[in-house]
Simulated scan of single mutants.
Amino acid sequence: MKWQVKYALENLSRDQDVASAAHVGGDAIQIAVHGHPDVLAIISDAHIIDRELIRKYFLEFPVMDFMCGYRKECIWEGGAIRFLKEKNIGWGSAGTLSSALGKDDIRTATHKEYRFAYRLIEQSRSISDLNREFDRIFSLKLWNGKPLRVGMVREYEPTADAIRTLWERFGPVDIVWSINPNGFPRADAIEAGRELGCDVLQWDELKSVLKGR
């Protein structure tokens, strides 16, 4: 049994919604949830989850309900996210899995760190050609045809290091969106963005940009 499967089972045993959880082979566990159907979850230790990895898991466990990237630093590529959406399989972090258990449909669950922010973008009528490149990176076109590439950071107070790390890992962006509604980017983060050639914005500021203001 791999380390991440062992830790997942230990943590789930303390979850009040969980009646039982058992290893069923490979990276898969079966979770019995009070008052809800059982859940077959894949617990992956991958640093990067791409479409090919998802396909391998799906071939081995075609009835999987949820794909969990157990590492906190796990990155999800857009192709993997689209595959899971097409197959109606939930995806996200260990926290996402835990919070989705006991809900009506775990198969519609998405990464809790980015769920609300990305839904705002999906519901915007000011954009077109929305493409999710990674869990935290998306590109789009405004109503006037202007393209934008946006990266999301979720820290309470994003620092210059958070901005530079995003840029170095995922390439240039036009906007870094600070998605934590309770925090504010630090002055050094905004300055780092200027040095790199991007704006560091919160939702109200980004919303104005999307509307062409």
Rank of each mutant, 00 (worst) to 15 (best):
A109Q: 01
T110M: 00
H111F: 06
H111W: 04
H111Y: 07
K112D: 00
K112G: 04
E113W: 05
E113T: 06
E113G: 02
E113V: 04
R115V: 12
R115Q: 15
R115D: 15
R115T: 14
F116H: 15
F116I: 15
A117I: 07
A117T: 07
A117M: 02
Y118I: 01
Y118N: 05
Y118W: 06
R119G: 09
R119Q: 14
L120G: 00
I121R: 00
E122W: 10
Q123S: 15
S124V: 11
S124Y: 14
R125M: 11
I127G: 12
S128D: 05
D129K: 14
D129P: 08
D129N: 15
L130P: 12
L130Q: 13
L130G: 14
L130K: 13
N131M: 14
N131K: 13
R132A: 08
R132I: 13
R132N: 08
R132H: 12
F134W: 15
F134P: 05
F134Q: 13
D135C: 05
D135F: 03
R136E: 11
R136L: 11
I137P: 04
I137D: 04
I137G: 01
F138P: 02
S139C: 03
S139N: 05
L140A: 09
L142F: 01
L142Q: 06
L142I: 06
W143R: 09
W143T: 09
W143A: 12
W143M: 10
G145P: 07
K146C: 07
P147R: 11
P147G: 12
L148T: 11
L148E: 07
R149Y: 02
R149K: 07
R149F: 06
V150C: 01
V150G: 02
R154S: 00
R154L: 00
Y156V: 01
Y156F: 06
E157N: 07
P158E: 00
P158I: 00
T159V: 05
A160P: 09
A162Q: 02
A162D: 10
I163V: 10
R164C: 10
R164M: 09
T165V: 14
L166Q: 09
L166V: 09
W167Y: 08
E168W: 07
E168A: 10
F170A: 08
G171N: 02
G171E: 05
P172G: 03
P172H: 04
V173K: 12
V173R: 12
D174N: 04
I175W: 02
I175R: 04
I175V: 10
V176Q: 03
W177F: 15
W177P: 10
S178M: 05
S178H: 05
I179H: 05
P181S: 03
P181R: 09
N182K: 07
N182A: 10
G183R: 00
F184R: 06
P185D: 11
P185C: 12
P185L: 09
P185N: 14
P185W: 08
R186H: 08
R186E: 13
R186S: 08
A187W: 11
A189E: 01
I190S: 03
I190W: 02
E191M: 10
A192D: 12
A192R: 11
A192W: 12
A192C: 14
R194P: 04
R194G: 06
R194H: 13
R194I: 12
R194Q: 11
E195L: 15
L196K: 08
G197P: 10
G197W: 14
G197R: 13
D199H: 12
D199S: 11
V200W: 03
